[in-house]
């Protein structure tokens, strides 16, 4: 894949940026704690992070590390093309649990907002003030490499100079993210 300026992988509680191990925790660490410890390690002050569902947290943290070298102007017209396999099933299930008991029926608005997988793109775009076009694709897990190449080929550069492409997924406590910053 050409024109890759930066790459980040987060899986198995290891953060690898540009091929170098940046942060890690023991495998026994719960995912939520791993995400919050990485957030604190990065010295971020963005409380909305804690409200995000796991998929959005994953994308948010990866984007944070990938895009922190760019100026606001460079990020403004960036395209974001991502793919995932299990959509927002974790949040869908949690939301379902809030409406399945008739005696305790309460459709939680704060859960409902994450019952779409492309919310992760919205969270990244809001954080970095990115106004370029975006899209999120669903693909089988075994198609990860192929979908990333497809996303890369789909970029039509026009005036913009950067694109964030990649794959992320969160399902049954397993997660992974591979993001690439592409320069035109």
């Amino acid at each position: 894949m050409h024109n890759v300026q930066r790459a980040i992988t987060i899986r198995n509680h290891q953060v690898i940026l540009q091929g170098e191990l940046l942060f890690q925790r023991d495998q026994s660490t719960p995912n939520a704690r791993f995400f919050s410890e990485l957030y604190k390690e990065l010295k971020l002050t963005y409380p909305k992070f804690f409200k995000m569902d796991p998929l959005a947290k994953l994308g948010f943290l990866a984007a944070e590390l990938l895009l922190n070298s760019l100026s606001a102007e460079e990020k403004e017209e960036m395209k974001i093309l991502l793919a995932c396999s299990h959509s927002s099933i974790e949040s869908d299930t949690m939301f379902q649990n809030t409406i399945s008991d008739e005696s305790n029926y309460y459709p939680s608005p704060s859960l409902f907002v994450y019952t779409l997988p492309n919310i992760v793109i919205g969270e990244i775009a809001i954080r970095h003030r990115i106004y370029g076009e975006n899209g999120l694709y669903l693909t089988p897990p075994n198609n990860k490499k192929s979908i990333i190449e497809t996303l890369h080929k789909q970029i039509k550069w026009e005036d913009n100079r950067y694109a964030l492409i990649g794959y992320l997924d969160y399902y049954k406590n397993k997660y992974e993210v591979d993001f690439y910053l592409i320069h035109s």
Binding site: A32, F50, K57
Partner: peptide, 27 residues
């Protein structure tokens, strides 16, 4: 509010709940 990973110590009881501070919204 599903602040997963946040602890009570992370919240300043005198900080604004909306906007800055805890960053809550209309939902």
């Amino acid at each position: 509010l599903n602040f997963e990973g946040m602890t009570p110590e992370d919240i300043d009881e005198n900080a604004p709940l909306f906007g800055d501070g805890l960053g809550l919204d209309s939902i």
